[in-house]
Amino acid sequence: MDLIKPEFGLFFWQTIVFLVLLFLMAKFAWKPILNSVKDREDSINDALASAENARLEMKNLKANNEKLLKEAREERDIMIKEARQIKEKMIADASGEAEIKAKSMIASAQEAIKMEKQAALNEIKTQVASLSIEIAEKVVSKELTSKEDHMKLVDSMLDDVKLN
């Protein structure tokens, strides 16, 4: 058991070396070590603050993006609604114009029919008059001496008879 025997001299010198080492460490090493630990702590805190700021900024950006999407959807809905209204108005306008054109065409067709009817009646009148003149010439040729008298007689007879 010689190995575990305490010696006072060795203990004394170890204590002095420890105190000198502690003094040197306190004088030269503790401040730089504590400063580097403090700097590391500050950089970690700054990184955490930056991460928190980035998280908040991302949250704000997400909220802004959602707001922009909502506004874009609303604008799209408004544009679609306006386009539908314009389409309906264009259809209504085109329908109105078509109806007006159809009425105009019907009116012009009726007018053309009326004019054609009148022209046909006039032609029939003329043919009846010429036939009547021929017949009247034969019948009245002895009594009337001129063709002019024949025409007057036929015209007066035609005026008496009204055609549809």
Rank of each mutant, 00 (worst) to 15 (best):
L61S: 10
A72N: 04
H150P: 02
L34D: 15
I78C: 13
A54C: 03
M58N: 08
E88G: 13
I80D: 15
A51L: 06
F18V: 08
E71C: 04
I16Y: 07
E74A: 15
K59Y: 05
K125L: 04
E57L: 07
A119W: 00
L10R: 13
P32F: 02
K103R: 12
E134P: 06
V37D: 12
L68G: 07
V37P: 08
A51K: 05
R73S: 12
A26T: 12
F12C: 08
E75S: 09
M25A: 15
S36A: 14
M105N: 14
K5W: 00
S141Y: 09
G96H: 12
D42P: 01
A109Q: 04
A112N: 10
F8I: 01
Q14C: 07
I78H: 14
Q127W: 04
V161E: 12
D93W: 12
M79Y: 11
I16D: 05
K138H: 04
N60H: 03
T126R: 00
I4Y: 03
K81W: 05
Q127G: 05
H150W: 04
D46P: 03
E74N: 14
L19C: 10
E82M: 11
K142V: 02
N35R: 00
P32L: 05
A107Q: 12
K67T: 03
M25W: 11
Q85F: 14
P6L: 12
V140P: 04
D155P: 02
F18Y: 13
I78T: 11
R55S: 06
L34I: 07
M157Q: 11
R76W: 10
A120I: 05
L3C: 04
K114W: 03
E111Y: 01
Q127K: 09
E7N: 08
F18W: 13
E66A: 06
V139I: 11
S132Q: 05
L22W: 09
L144F: 09
L21F: 12
A72T: 06
L19Q: 11
V20W: 03
P32W: 01
N35W: 01
N45C: 10
R76N: 11
A112V: 03
K59G: 00
I100F: 14
S146L: 11
A49R: 08
S132G: 07
V154S: 04
L153T: 12
I135E: 02
L19M: 14
K62E: 10
K125P: 00
E82C: 08
E148V: 06
L131H: 04
Q110F: 01
V17H: 13
P32A: 08
V17Y: 09
K162W: 00
S50A: 13
I91W: 03
K70F: 07
I91Q: 03
F18T: 12
Q85V: 06
I4M: 05
E88S: 14
I135H: 00
A49T: 09
L131D: 08
Q118K: 02
N45V: 04
K87I: 01
S132Y: 00
L10K: 10
A72Y: 05
E71G: 05
P6M: 03
E57K: 09
E52Q: 06
L121R: 02
I80L: 15
K27I: 10
P32D: 07
S43K: 09
K38N: 15
E41S: 11
D77F: 13
V140L: 09
S104M: 09
F28V: 15
A63D: 11
I4S: 02
R40T: 10
E123A: 01
V140I: 08
L131P: 01
L68D: 07
E97M: 09
T126C: 00
K103C: 08
L10C: 00
